[in-house]
Computed example of a mutant assay.
Amino acid sequence: MDLRIFTEPQQGATYDDLLRVAQATEAAGFDAFFRSDHYLKMGDGDGLPGPTDAWITLAGLARETKRIRLGTLVTAATFRHPGPLAISVAQVDQMSGGRVEFGLGAGWFDTEHTAYALTLPPLKERFDRYAEQLEIITGLWKTPVDETFSFSGEHYTVVDSPALPKPAQSPAPPVIIGGGGKKRTPELAARFADEFNLPFASPEAALAQFERVAAAAEAVGRDPKEILRSVALTVAIGRDDAEVARRAGAIGRDLGELRESGLAGTAAEVVDRIGQWREKTGITRLYLQVLDLQDLDHLELIASDVAPQL
C-alpha cells in the first residue's frame, strides 16, 4: 500500500510551511507529497496568509526534495489554458527529475472563481472543456520531438504546435482522474487515467465508482487493471484516545464523524480500517489528508506505527 501525504494549503499555509511538510514526508519514507489546487479557503478560519499557486509550489519543491513523487489532487481545468499548463507541468517534471504526477479535474468551487476573476462554465460545458484539455495536454506531451501537434475542438484549437517542452517521464507523467460522476468521469478515466482517485467516500461508494471505471475501460478495449485505484481520507491518528481527540479537535472535526468517514484512531485501529478498505475496494494507494501542517509529529507517528504494518 502506497501512503501519500495530501495537504490543503488554501486553508492557510506559506511555501515554507509546505516545504517543511514535504521534506518531513520524504524523510519519513512516504511515497509522495500532494497538494490541492485551490485559491480560496473553505469553511472556518481566515485562510491567512493566503493561497499559494500549486504548480509554482511544486516547482520549488521539485528542487528541494530528491525522492518523493509530487502532484495535485487536483488541478482545476478552469484555472489555466491547456497549452501553458502542459508547459508548466512538463517543466516541473524536468525540474524534479521525472517525479511529477498530474491530477486534473473539471473545476467546481464557484466562490473561488468569482473571487479571482475565473470563469466557471455550466456543468456540461465544463466537462466538454475538461475533456478537450485532457486531449490537448496528453497529446502535446506524447507527440514525438520532430513532429507537431494539432487539435480542433469546440472550445480549443491547436495548430501545428511544436509540442515542447517534453516532460522528463516518457511518454508522459501519470494522469490522475477522480470524482463521483457516474457517466462522463468514468469514460474520461477509461481513456486518459493511469490512476483513479475517489476522495472522502465510503468503501461502498468507492467500489461502485471503481466498477464503473472498470466497465468503461473494458468498453474501450482497455484492461481495467491498468488503472490504479486510490482514495483520499482525512487522518487523525494518535498513540492513545486523548491524542486522537486532540488531533481531531485541532482540525475542527467531530471525532465520531471522523472515525466513520476518515481514518481516526490509534495506529492499530487505523491499520485495521485500511485493511478493510483494501479488502472491499482493491485500493493500492492511499492519500492521507493532513490538515494541521504544523504537526510534523503526526507524520512521524504514521511512518513509525502505521506504515510498517501495511
Rank of each mutant, 00 (worst) to 15 (best):
A22K: 00
D241Q: 10
P203Q: 07
E147N: 13
A168R: 15
T266K: 05
L188H: 03
T14E: 02
G83S: 12
S304P: 05
D110L: 09
E269Y: 01
L263M: 03
A168I: 08
F192K: 02
P9W: 08
A242K: 09
R212D: 08
V145K: 12
A268P: 11
V74M: 13
L286Y: 06
A27V: 13
D110W: 15
E260D: 13
L293F: 00
G139Y: 11
R69V: 12
L296D: 11
A264C: 05
R35K: 05
E204I: 11
G98K: 00
S161V: 01
E147A: 05
A76C: 09
A77Q: 15
R212P: 08
R35Y: 10
E300C: 06
M95G: 11
D223I: 12
A76K: 11
R99I: 09
R273L: 05
E226H: 12
R184V: 15
L58A: 05
A24M: 03
E226T: 05
L40G: 04
T266M: 03
Y116F: 10
L299F: 03
D44C: 08
E257N: 11
P174C: 10
F151C: 11
S150T: 13
T57P: 06
R129S: 10
R285P: 12
E101I: 03
R63E: 12
S88A: 12
F34A: 12
F79Y: 06
A32V: 02
A86Y: 04
A77F: 00
V270P: 06
E269A: 05
Q133A: 08
V100F: 13
F33T: 13
D16H: 14
L140I: 06
L118E: 10
V92Y: 02
L85N: 02
L48H: 08
P186N: 05
G47R: 00
D44N: 09
F102A: 10
P162V: 08
A54Y: 08
M95F: 13
Q169Y: 02
D297Y: 00
E269K: 03
V100N: 10
R212A: 11
R67P: 06
Q309A: 14
G71P: 07
T75A: 11
V244H: 01
D160T: 13
S161F: 07
